[in-house]
Each structure stands twice: as C-alpha cells, then as structure tokens.
Design a protein around this nucleic acid. Sequence first.
DNA 1: GTATTTTATGGTAGCGCTGTCATTATTCTT
DNA 2: AAGAATAATGACAGCGCTACCATAAAATAC
Lengths: 341, 341
Amino acid sequence: MARKRNANRNAGTPTLADVARLAGMSEITVSRVVRNQGPIADATRTRVLAAIAQLGYIPNRAAGSLASAASTLMTVILPSLSNIVFPDVLRGIHTAITETAFQPVIGVTDYDPLIEERILLSFLAWQPAAVILAGLHHTPTARKHLEQGRFRVAELMDIDGDPVDIAVGMSHRQAGYETGRHLIKRGYRKFGYAGHMLVHDDRAKARYEGLCTALQEAGLSLVAEMRSPGGGSTIAGRELLEKLLAAHPDLDVVIFPNDDMAMGGIFHCMHAGIAIKERLGLFGFNGLDIGQVMPLPLSTILSKRFLIGKTAAEKLLESRERPAEKTIINTGFDIIEGGTA
Amino acid sequence: MARKRNANRNAGTPTLADVARLAGMSEITVSRVVRNQGPIADATRTRVLAAIAQLGYIPNRAAGSLASAASTLMTVILPSLSNIVFPDVLRGIHTAITETAFQPVIGVTDYDPLIEERILLSFLAWQPAAVILAGLHHTPTARKHLEQGRFRVAELMDIDGDPVDIAVGMSHRQAGYETGRHLIKRGYRKFGYAGHMLVHDDRAKARYEGLCTALQEAGLSLVAEMRSPGGGSTIAGRELLEKLLAAHPDLDVVIFPNDDMAMGGIFHCMHAGIAIKERLGLFGFNGLDIGQVMPLPLSTILSKRFLIGKTAAEKLLESRERPAEKTIINTGFDIIEGGTA
DNA sequence: GTATTTTATGGTAGCGCTGTCATTATTCTT
DNA sequence: AAGAATAATGACAGCGCTACCATAAAATAC
C-alpha cells in the first residue's frame, strides 16, 4: 500500500510539498526559490526560505535530476591517486567548482582504458553535467558515449591528439623533446633512461618518444634504458639507477619519467658518492615541490597540474551546452634548470 | 505537452521500458535482472541481458534512487588534498569499493567544520548509502544530521572521542606521547617544536599535547616552538627550522607535525652543515615513503592511511543498516626509528 | 484608457525506476 | 493426490521534483 511506503520514507524527511504547505505557496514556487530561478517576489522568497530553515529541508537531488534529466554531478575519472599529480589536478577542479552547485564523483582507473570505460558507464547513470578524464585515448565504446552524451567533456593532461570537446594540458611529446635539447645543450652525450612499466601511461611514453627524437636529431641515441617492474616510486628510482649504472657505468645523464623516481636517483648518488651533475646528470618530470626544496634542487619540467584541473573545470562551467567547436588549451610547461643536470 | 518533453529527452537514451519491450518481459523483471535481485529464470536473464546489450541501456540511477530512497553513492569529505595523506585514505576507500556498486563523491573542507557542514548537507541531497569524514569533531548541525540520517557513518583518522557509528584510526594523543617518550629515551633534552597554523588540524594538536604531556612527566618542557603561518609544507619546514635555530641554537631535537616539514628540516641541516641526530634530532609524522628512501631515513611515526580508508569502507559495506553499537577500530601506528633522531 | 509587455505564481503531468502485493507455474510434502 | 511451499513473473502506484503551459496582476507603452 502506498501509505506504508510513505511511512517508511517520510520519517522526518521534509519534502518540497511540506515546505510549500508551511510557506503557503505552491511547490513550484518553492522549487524556484531553491534553484534561484525565475522571478520571485522578495516577500515570497523570504517566507519560503524561512519555511525551509524551519523544517531543515534538504532538496532531493535524485528527484530533481529525474525531473530535469540533468544533475549537478561532475564525473572525474583519473588514472591514479598514488602520486600527488592527480590529487593536484583534483584540487584544481575542486577549487573551480567549490562555490558552484557541482559535486565531483571520483573514479580511478589504474591507467586501464577498460576500467575507465566501466567507470564511465556506471557514472553516466547519474546523468552528469560534465565528465573529466585524463588523456585523449579511450576505448571506442567510451569515446562513443563521450561524443553522444548530453554533457560536456574535458580531457586533461595531454593535448597531442583529437579531443572530444575540450582538452587542457600540455604536449608531453614536446616536453620530452625539450628535455633532450636542453640536456644536449648542457653537454651531455651518454643518455640513459630509467622508466617504469606502466604500459598505459601514454604521457610518459610520449615524453620518452620526444626525448628519443631530440637525441636522434643530434645524432645521438639512448645508450641504455631500464624499466622498473613496479611503478614509478622513489624507491624504484633509487634501485633502478643503481642497476642501470652497474650495467652502464659510462652514462653521463639519466632521465626519469617523473620526479619521484628522479629523487630516488639523487638519493642513490648521494649514497654512492656520485657527483651529481658533474659526473652524472639527473632529470625528472613534474616539478614537485619537494624536489625543489632539496639542497640540490632537481632539474625537471614543471607540469601545471593544479592549473590544468582548475582551467578545465572553469571551462566546463562556462556553458551548459556542449561546445560547437573543439577547444585545446595549452597550459604549457617550464623547464626548471635546477642543480642536477 | 508530454510528447514534447519526451522528444527532448529520449533522444537515443533507452529506458527500462524499451528493454522490456524488446525482451518481451515486464519492466520489473528487467529491473530485477539489472539489480541481480530476486529469482530469475536463466533463459529470462539471458534474453534481458541481450536486449540490454543491443540497446546499450544504461540504468538511470536518479530514477532508481528516487524510487528506492537509497543510492549507491558514498560521500567522502576530507580536509585537504594538498598532502598525499588524504589521497592515500581515498585510495584505500577506492580499493575497498572498486568491485562494488558504490561510487565516491568527494568534498574538501580545508579543515573548516563550517565548510564540512555545508558540503555534508549538499551531499545528503543524494541520499548517500554511507558518509565518510575525517575526525570526530563536527558542527552541531552536521552531527545531528549524521546521527539521524538513513546512512552509515565512518569517521576516520582519529579515535580519541565519541564517534557517530564507526571510527577508524589511531590515537594521535598517544602518538605524540610516544614520540616524546622515545626521544627522551634517546637522550634528547632540549625540545623544539616547529608547527603550522592550521588551527583546525585537531590531530596535529592532539599529537602536540601528547608530546607536551610526555615531556612534563619527565620534568621537561618545550624549550621553543614556532609555527609557520602558511601550511605544513617542506619549504615551510626548512625555513622554520632555520628561524627556530637562530633564536634557540641550544635545541637538541625538533619535532614537526608531519614528514613534509621534517624533510624541510633535514634539508636545512644538510645545507647548513648541521650533524643530524648527533647535533640535532629531527622527528616527523606520517611515515611517507620519500622520507624513508633518503640516505638518512627520517625518524617518524607511520600512520596507516591506506589501511584506515580501506578498513572504514569495508566496514561500511558489511551491512546496509546503521550499526546498533558504536565501533572503534584502532589501526595503530609504528615508530620508525630512522636515522634522524 | 486600452493594448502590450513584464512579473509573479500555480496546475498538472510526467521523469524512469522500484516497493508492494498478486498471480501463476512448478516442486516438494506426507 | 491434495495441500503447502517455492520459483518466476507481472500490475500498478508513487518516489519528489521540474518542464511546460496557463493565468493573474502589475508595469509600461502609445
């Protein structure tokens, strides 16, 4: 019976109708006050707000979403949370939407496009207002949904490719290339690469390729490379550099796919008494704070993660509609000369 | 007119009714298949799943939530994302729920209980299945909602207090106390504290108080303390230690509220040529990886952040109902002796 | 002073799904 | 073989809200 159902639910949860009754207005008027939409007389607004406060009314967003076929949720799907990089992006997003009605729903893919697809579909069930993901590479199914959905899409970090709507990030290929150019200019000639095995980390791969291109153009090539089977942690960087140098003691510079690993490299050198920069150059990527506070600041490339997140979210807030044209926002990067290469 | 409305929405979004029609079943049966609920004949399930696949049906969770007065959303409200600590917690939560239907919605409070309250209320509009927050201290309004809501509540990090339902964490007061005992045992006598000004960081405060208690019991007290106006970053730790030592050169050990600041302390000593441990002990909190990989591993306390997040989420998954009794899960902490104190 | 626009409010019909109660086939008891 | 329990499915109302249209009152136009 309907009454039973009501009894179960309504236990102390006031609805629009309750507010309307108390304020002596219709439901739709209360709804308009709540949503700040349409013309409302000041007196009416005051009365309604008083009733809302008195009852402690909390709007039911599920009902609202259902009725309007739209929600205030912003789907954020990131590859990882292990490293501060993506929390930084998330922080940027949060900063942009903190004063808006948007609420971020988070998914983590572990760099796996199939997991990304699964998470995306499960989140689309909420009719999100916008979707943010990392990178430009998704499964065909995911891409299809992203293109056909009634929501805006921002793809972060990477701009080397064809975005669905909006891409915000930097060219990782170029970053790798500039890294190579920079180090060649500094006089390094025997390049080593100490990477990781995250096969789906497209951006690390793009930087690697950019680096190789720069070397090639200068008639050089990687003398040695190794990849740590785990991930890209500091400890992995430390151990990997040790192994790399054991096999190739003649290297004069080693590039890491991120600052965490590069710092591990610094620690190995400190421990093994290797003169950083003079005897062996070390170069990272990301420009983490900690690398810059060290007595010998890490030479690296500053990626603007917070800015990427913030810019993307702001761009998504600009309009409710999908943009007619694709937009690519290049947040660029800075080479931090540092003291290690 | 209804037709117009339909036309706008239905643009390519199949509903349960569409699936039911195609499969030749009733809507409720399709719903049961989707939710894996109730007895369904194998043949029926197969037929329905085929229809779902054919149409690319995605259930509308807003409608489902409205009808059932329950959602699959898990509200996660954290103080900050700037430091890896809370992303670690979030990672633990995500690990626990990744194979379930739960989806985390994230809020960040900047350690402000009023912002926490605002975020909580806005999230309750989704009728979440569970709420996770940090700490045991909330505004009265927030506490009231947490106690009366139709969802389970987990309060993380801290267990010194009275939880709503479930608390998962450690005693920060005890951690501070043990820090003091440990350093006294090591022979340190002239204690300095290099903190920050996050007034709402209750846990740093509890550790500080525990430390003071330990000193007092040994007839000692803090010789000097300073607080950096910014936050608890590595650079702040480095600058603060320099200032602290300039004013109080006789200190023989300095405690920091977190590893980030303590590492800043290490860097200052390295730069200034101060013999760490012999001349000046340094002690942190958190047990971050990076501190342990340094040539001189940081002396600190390992807080089990990932475990806290994971345990809490698992506990919340155990039952759909609010627990009859309060539960406190102490994940404990480990003193890492390290090499800096 | 009437026509037109603007401002403020309400009635009503769903949105897409699930809870509740029935109903019919099937299997198990004794 | 009749009765009881179980398995499998369906009808239907309604969750709480908002889009859509309509209407009344006030302001403005000419």
